[in-house]
């Protein structure tokens, strides 16, 4: 299979590889996929409490080159975005940016799911963390 230059670049030089403390209340963790399907993505975001902006993003992925590239790209895009902006990232954006062929579209879907799961986890933590009645946005 021929990979696009961008997939090859992310595969050869993956951005933001690593893990953050999943118990940190400002860190949201999303893990999607399954080993028997051949891809598992773990994506984490760390949100700046004061600004509500994603200050850091990390990933680890078990999967094909396109899955690695999709999640690597996602971490690049997440940094500097607000939580709501992050949720607006669509799998089709990833497909277009990486020129993924049709058989690899599920990799981009998985990356979108990972973003949503990570943000969802963060929001859940914040909801549990904040005293009742307090609003997150100001």
């Amino acid at each position: 299979m021929a990979y696009s230059d961008k997939v090859l670049d992310h595969y050869s030089h993956p951005r933001n590889v690593g893990s953050m403390d999943k118990n940190d209340p400002n860190v949201g963790t999303g893990m999607v996929g399954a080993p028997e399907c051949g891809d598992v993505m773990k994506l984490q975001v760390k949100v700046d409490e004061a600004t509500g902006i994603i200050a850091d993003a990390k990933f680890k992925t078990f999967g094909c080159g396109s899955a690695i590239a999709s999640s690597s790209l996602a971490t690049e895009w997440l940094k500097g975005k607000t939580v709501d902006e992050a949720l607006a990232i669509k799998n089709t954006d990833i497909v277009n940016e990486l020129s993924l062929p049709p058989v690899k579209i599920h990799c981009s879907v998985l990356a979108e799911d990972a973003i949503k799961a990570a943000i969802g986890d963060y929001k859940k933590k914040q909801g549990a963390h904040k005293p009742a009645g307090e609003t997150v946005a100001s």
Partner: peptide
């Protein structure tokens, strides 16, 4: 690999598979 290193049994995890 990270989870296995941490001693997590992968077979016990409920994977969110598509």
């Amino acid at each position: 690999y990270e989870m296995v290193r941490e001693g997590i049994d992968l077979s016990k995890i409920e994977w969110q598979a598509e």
